[in-house]
Measured scan of single mutants.
Amino acid sequence: CAFTHRPCSHPRLEGQEFCIKHILEDKNAPFKQCSYISTKNGKRCPNAAPKPEKKDGVSFCAEH
């Protein structure tokens, strides 16, 4: 993984420079932040999710 703030030993995603944990660092990657919002604390999930086809579409990470 090419994350520069600290060493990361996670494997890169195929065709990308970053792992799934750090892929949002790459603005050109086909990922965006997960659209899930917790009902308990109102916070948005920080994980990466595939970018949807539509610009305003929602997309969820593997956990959600």
Rank of each mutant, 00 (worst) to 15 (best):
R12P: 07
L24V: 06
L24G: 10
T4Q: 02
A29I: 03
E17R: 05
P52N: 15
I20N: 03
H64I: 00
C34V: 01
Y36N: 07
L24R: 07
P30R: 05
R6A: 07
G15P: 01
P46S: 13
A29N: 05
A48K: 06
S35G: 13
H10D: 04
C61R: 01
R44Y: 11
P11S: 07
C61M: 01
E25H: 15
N41I: 12
C45N: 02
S35Q: 10
S9I: 15
C61H: 02
I23P: 01
E63Y: 08
A62W: 11
G15Y: 01
P52D: 11
S59Q: 13
E14S: 07
A62G: 11
K21L: 09
C19L: 00
F18L: 08
K51I: 14
C8D: 01
P7C: 05
H10A: 09
N41E: 15
C1Q: 02
K51C: 12
L13Y: 04
R6N: 08
A49L: 11
F31K: 06
A29F: 03
N28Y: 07
G15D: 09
P46I: 12
R6F: 15
G42A: 13
Y36V: 09
I37Q: 14
C1W: 00
E63K: 11
P52Q: 12
E63V: 06
K27R: 09
Q16H: 05
C8H: 00
K21Q: 09
R44E: 08
N28K: 10
C19G: 00
F18E: 01
F31A: 05
A29M: 05
H22W: 00
K32G: 12
A49D: 03
K21Y: 04
Q16N: 04
C45D: 02
C8Q: 00
K32Y: 06
T4G: 02
R12K: 03
C61V: 02
E14I: 05
R12H: 03
A2V: 04
P7H: 08
P11W: 01
R12E: 01
C19S: 00
Q16R: 11
E14N: 03
C45H: 01
H5W: 06
N47Q: 15
S59V: 11
N47T: 13
K21T: 07
K40E: 00
E17M: 14
C34R: 01
P52K: 08
E63A: 12
R44L: 13
I37R: 13
A2C: 11
S9D: 09
S59T: 14
K40S: 03
H10N: 10
F18G: 01
T4I: 09
S38P: 14
F18D: 01
P30C: 04
P46C: 12
F31H: 04
K51S: 10
H5S: 08
H64D: 03
R12T: 10
C45R: 01
A29C: 07
C8N: 01
K32I: 08
E14C: 07
H22Y: 00
P50R: 10
A48Y: 07
P50L: 08
Q16M: 07
C45M: 02
L13S: 03
P11K: 12
K21A: 13
H5A: 12
L24C: 09
I23F: 02
A48T: 08
